[in-house]
Design a protein around this nucleic acid. Sequence first.
DNA 1: TGCAGGATTAGC
DNA 2: CTAATCCTGCAA
Length: 217
Amino acid sequence: MLTLAQCGPTLPRDFYERTTLEVAPDLIGKRLCVLHPNDALQTGLIVEVEAYLGTEDRASHARLQKRGGSLVPSARSSLMFGPVGLAYVYLIYGLHHCVNVVAHAPGAVGAILIRALRPEGSLAKKSCSGPAKLCAQLGIDRRHNGSSLLGTIQPAPTDAAGQPLAQIFIATPSQTPAPLPAQVRSGPRIGVAYAGPDALLPYRFGLANDPDLSRPL
DNA sequence: TGCAGGATTAGC
DNA sequence: CTAATCCTGCAA
């Protein structure tokens, strides 16, 4: 199992403060890390993500909604409008959690869904190939909504019930070579057929031919 | 206040 | 292919 120091340097805030479509492919090959209150550490390399943009993206939670005759963004997506480097975690189908990274240019709106990991260490034999599966494996749930991904702090934070909360962060692996940009491919996002033409936008990014993809790219 | 549907997954 | 399951958006 990896130690905290072996995870590599944590991605700084500046990494996330670029356009969402710039940040998304750059997350491929980075290491998602969860430090649990009992000091257990779970990690995996990101092999697949999807970018979700702002009010104009019909597939995004941040898209405009009808309300009182006018169009406004929904309350759920408010984190996507705010500071970068935070986790946006939501419940889907009443059953599963999905985790996003808030990332966008200054004044813009957007987040990146983490869709699949290559599991490492204690996770090595588990499947993290799917946005809900990786959250289940890593113990990520709505208590982490709004938590910072920019590093660990002491003492560990607590949730609304006062219970200790696992800390999530993303690091640049120092012992694994970064994937060549040529190996990162894009394709249409999964499960967004309701978005009409926006369902075809190539905002899904992943390592070409990686066995840990949630689906082939 | 009520209802339709979802950035998914496992199982038949 | 469908069920599971609950929060959110949106109409009434």
